[in-house]
């Protein structure tokens, strides 16, 4: 995500909207390929996914710092305006329209054979294998789609802030985990949609604002996120215990 953000800034600096859109497409492609590469390493080496993902995240973070050493503004205003402001109605911000990329990609994928295979692999790898699902390709596709959405996130960050931030990955990795846990995505695989995490992203973004309105230090938001994760995981665990009883 941070890599997409800084690559976009570096390439868009001083250019117009058309050039920026071409850059955005190239960045999307690059980061999708980076995600696919991550998946390919996991599938080929059979090293646990968390290890490879953590290792490659350090590589991408280092690369982002090489591309841009410090937060730098310079995203063209026309490109920022794709997400900022409201074209149709004050209550329908452009950012909400950008968010439509998620269902536009997710719904066809989820209903396709490949999307079904991704969930089948996460739900029960042995059953998926016996049903003829190509596990390697399904997992690789999942990582490629992950790369695509991470690139969208990086570009969205460019649009919303106008700044290239090489260290953005740290915050969004942790907050992303909070959002998926709160959004009802099973960390054990095979369950979860896009609606829950999107609502959770709104909730997690709203908490610091509420704290500011209350006159409380917004840094308490981080603590509230942590408490929320603990509560949600406990509720999830309680649900599993009750189902077994």
């Amino acid at each position: 995500m941070a890599l997409a953000n800084v690559l976009a800034l570096r390439a868009m600096l001083g250019h117009d909207l058309n050039y920026s859109l071409v850059v955005a497409l190239i960045v999307l492609l690059e980061v999708t390929l980076a995600g696919a590469l991550n998946g390919a390493i996991i599938v080929v080496t059979r090293v646990p996914d968390i290890v490879i993902t953590l290792a490659t995240s350090f590589i991408w973070a280092g690369l982002a710092l090489l591309v841009l050493a410090k937060p730098t503004p310079g995203i063209p205003l026309d490109f920022q305006n794709l997400a900022q402001g409201s074209t149709f109605s004050p209550w329908v911000p452009n950012a909400l329209l950008v968010l439509l990329v998620i269902p536009l990609v997710w719904i066809p994928l989820r209903r396709s054979r490949a999307g079904l295979a991704i969930y089948a692999v996460g739900s029960d790898r042995n059953a998926a294998f016996r049903s003829g699902v190509n596990l390697g390709w399904s997992r690789l596709l999942a990582y490629a789609v992950c790369g695509f959405f991470a690139a969208c996130g990086g570009l969205a960050l460019s649009m919303t802030t106008g700044v290239g931030t090489p260290l953005a990955g740290t915050y969004y990795t942790l907050s992303g985990v909070s959002a998926i846990v709160l959004g009802g995505v099973s960390l054990a695989g095979g369950r979860g949609g896009m609606l829950g995490p999107v609502a959770a992203a709104y909730i997690l973004s709203l908490i610091p604002a509420v704290l500011i309105y209350l006159g409380i230090d917004p840094n308490y938001g981080q603590m509230i996120q942590g408490v929320l994760i603990v509560i949600v995981v406990m509720i999830g665990g309680l649900g599993v215990v009750l189902r077994r009883a």
């Binding site: 993902t53 998620i102 999942a142 991470a150 919303t160 953005a168 995505v185 695989g189 992203a201």
Partner: peptide
């Protein structure tokens, strides 16, 4: 605007969590 990058990051992680048990 604040939720947009986080929503994309969360969906990116969702797809991997769905595939990886």
């Amino acid at each position: 605007l604040a939720a947009l990058p986080l929503a994309f990051a969360a969906v990116a992680q969702t797809i991997v969590c769905s595939a990886e048990a």
